[in-house]
Amino acid sequence: MMLVFGKTGQVATELRALLPNARFLGREQADLTEPKACFDAILAARPEAVINAAAYTAVDYAEENEATADVVNGVAPVQMAKACAELDIPLVHISTDYVFDGSGVVPFKPGDITAPLCAYGRTKLVGEHGVTEVGGRSAILRTSWVFSAHGGNFVKTMLRYGETRDKLTVVADQIGGPTAACDIAKACVTIARKLKVYPDKAGIYHFSGAPDVSWADFAREIFAQTGKKVVVEGIPATSYPTPAARPYNSRMDCTSFEAAFGIRRPDWKAGLADVLSDLEKTT
């Protein structure tokens, strides 16, 4: 039995479909603002593997609530790692491209220097450092620009705006790989199962959709696939200021992940088509 922290988030929702026999812990069962509860939950359940799909992901709110985000993103994963190390079981911990400063145009490799620009990135990096320090059968999976038919995300925001507007301005100078939550969920399950047999595959990996695009081009593809006649005008990120600074370059080198687990970067356009189909079924 696998144990998953998270119940209603984008990746957790996809994991529920993939792992019908897994146990999922929401805030009621394990509140990540109480990290010791995570440690105790793992020891009590004694699962075969743990996937942490829970996090403080409100990027802008984290600027004013960094202390809380630090507990959820930084301290709680370390307690999970300690419990998993004690039981000698795999831990898959999801992280983010926000641990980098987004400089340059070259895809970031897992071993590149980290320099987060915002509180969210800083707190996620604290978690990475802590999990790595604990060691054991732990893998950190950095991903980017997550989307699905569930929760709040860029795809659903664009569709909502497209209902009432025929022209939108979208940031065109931030580049990254949109990643379908279902692809992340599949990757997490593969990692967990591999780590049971091959503990030497522990480490930090990158996993994002291909090809890399701007937010504006992502939006154009959303409207192209839905047939909506919405004009997308690209603008610089400086024209759309946010409380938290976002990286301009979110390109990630995923070659080490493919080599270790045999999974190529997923085609995000195909993932988008599946998500749009799911959304159409629910409307």
Rank of each mutant, 00 (worst) to 15 (best):
M2R: 05
L3A: 01
V4K: 00
K7Y: 02
G9T: 08
L18E: 14
L19G: 10
N21V: 01
R23I: 09
F24N: 00
Q29F: 04
Q29K: 04
E34L: 05
E34Y: 04
P35R: 01
K36A: 12
F39Q: 07
F39R: 08
D40T: 04
D40F: 02
I42W: 03
I42Q: 00
I51W: 02
N52A: 06
N52E: 04
A58R: 14
V59N: 05
T68K: 11
A69I: 08
D70Y: 11
V71W: 14
V72A: 12
N73T: 03
A76C: 03
A76P: 02
V78N: 12
A81I: 03
A83W: 00
C84A: 03
D88F: 04
P90L: 10
L91N: 04
I94R: 03
I94D: 02
T96W: 02
F100I: 03
G104F: 05
P107M: 08
F108G: 12
F108M: 15
K109R: 15
G111F: 14
A115Y: 09
P116K: 03
L117S: 13
R122H: 14
T123Y: 00
T123P: 00
V126D: 07
G127N: 09
E133D: 15
R137G: 15
R142N: 13
T143F: 08
T143E: 06
S144W: 08
W145Q: 11
W145H: 07
F147P: 01
A149M: 05
G151Q: 08
G152I: 07
G152N: 10
G162T: 00
I175E: 06
I175G: 04
P178R: 02
P178V: 07
T179A: 02
C182P: 02
I184N: 01
K186I: 02
A187W: 06
T190F: 09
I191G: 11
R193K: 06
K194V: 12
A202D: 13
S208K: 03
G209A: 06
A210G: 13
P211V: 05
V213D: 07
D217M: 13
F218P: 03
R220A: 11
T226Y: 12
V231F: 10
E233Q: 10
A237F: 15
S239E: 12
Y240T: 12
Y240C: 14
A244G: 01
R251L: 00
E258M: 15
F261N: 07
G262H: 13
R265H: 10
D267G: 14
D267M: 11
K269I: 15
A270P: 15
A270D: 15
D274F: 08
V275G: 10
L276F: 04
E280M: 06
